[in-house]
């Protein structure tokens, strides 16, 4: 680990003032400390935000739920309002990490965790996400867990968060405090960026910006929510493919639907066209297949992960069948 300065912030304002391109905010530290030990991350300064008053889970202005950036993953998953109104989020959180990590990991930190691509964490290997311009050792390497959508010739890593996938399906936003004290909001969809030719930047946050809360809109009334995660081991394993599904039926037709996928792209993945193809339709295998065709039209295998393409299709069909009451209800 490289030496660093340590600053304890006493307000969000002082935190962003102390932040910057060479600094990192630290709260739970469950990902950052590991990366610092490996020297994948070598910040010059750590700004400790763990004592800020950014916890708490409560009603948001104008309806919905506000989750403080420092609320732990365990607390969010256990919160009554989350379990009642946003079960997909509770399930996504509980499917991730381990009990110990969820106790420590925060909401903001979960959103900003880095990829688990083994080449990203192995500093003896070239990685454009770690050192832009060095090349990508994953391409042509061991790619079982890599992306089938949204990858580029610079980076094929996936985003590891389960929570972010559920938030994306639930149309959540993040509240951000800027370096100049300004505040803004953007959707979780807008928060993440595709690697393009700058895979070192996972998000659209500017240097020094601090996530202060996640805002969930009022729960979609009458919609079925689910989160299903397919992985190599039943706990403490990242998703090969996961799906957060929010679907509402009206007179036997699909009225609303949101499908967010994890494990298949550099960001929690949603495809508006695939969802559009489902809206207003009578649910059934052909309709689901058609949506999967749209979703996977540009899917590309990376070496070892060809299995992900049919797996996404099956997961989509199975979860939609369940959500619309047209298939196996187990």
């Amino acid at each position: 680990m490289k030496p660093f300065d340590y600053v304890r912030a006493d307000s969000p304002r002082s935190a962003v003032a102390a932040g910057g391109a060479r600094a990192r905010f630290i709260a739970g530290g469950t990902n950052l400390i590991d990366l610092m030990k490996l020297e994948v991350e070598a910040p010059e300064r750590l700004v400790d935000i763990s004592r800020l008053d950014l916890g708490g889970i409560g009603p948001a202005e104008g309806g919905g739920l506000r989750i403080g950036a420092l609320a732990s993953n365990a607390d969010v998953a256990a919160a009554h309002a989350v379990r009642r109104d946003y079960p997909a989020l509770a399930r996504a959180l509980l499917s991730g990490a381990s009990g110990q990590i969820r106790n420590k990991a925060t909401t903001g930190g979960n959103l900003l965790q880095r990829t688990r691509c083994p080449y990203f964490t192995d500093t003896s290997q070239p990685c454009n996400k770690r050192r832009p311009g060095k090349g990508c050792a994953a391409i042509g390497g061991h790619t079982r867990n890599h992306a089938i959508l949204g990858a580029t010739s610079h980076c094929i890593a996936t985003h590891p968060s389960d929570m972010a996938v559920a938030l994306r399906a639930l149309d959540a936003s993040v509240e951000i405090e800027g370096a100049d004290g300004s505040r803004r909001r953007m959707t979780v969809g807008e928060l993440y960026r595709l690697p393009g030719d700058a895979p070192d930047r996972d998000t659209t946050l500017e240097a020094g910006e601090l996530i202060t809360a996640v805002i969930l809109p009022p729960p979609p009334a009458g919609a079925a929510q689910s989160y299903r995660k397919v992985r190599d081991r039943a706990s403490y394993a990242f998703a090969l493919v996961s799906l957060a599904c929010v679907a509402k039926m009206e007179d036997g037709r699909i009225d609303q639907v949101a499908l967010a996928f994890g494990g298949i792209a550099p960001v929690p993945w949603r495809d508006g066209a695939a969802e559009e193809a489902l809206r207003g339709e009578n649910p059934g295998p052909e309709v689901f297949e058609h949506a999967a065709d749209i979703l996977l039209a540009d899917a590309e295998r990376q070496g070892d992960n060809a299995f992900k393409i049919p797996l996404v299709r099956r997961l989509l069909k199975a979860e939609l069948a369940r959500a619309t009451g047209t298939g196996d209800q187990r």
Binding site: D34, R116, P118, T121, D122, S124, Q125, A137, G140, G141, H142, D232, R233, A234, S235, Y236, A237, F238
Partner: peptide, 28 residues
């Protein structure tokens, strides 16, 4: 079912943590 130590073509070991090396847990 899960434990494996993969190497890439250059002989680099691709497992470095217990998140990559899938030992059985209580759930298994």
């Amino acid at each position: 079912f899960g434990e494996e130590l993969p190497y890439d073509d250059d002989g680099a070991l691709l497992v470095g943590t217990l998140a990559d090396y899938l030992v059985p847990l209580a759930t298994d």
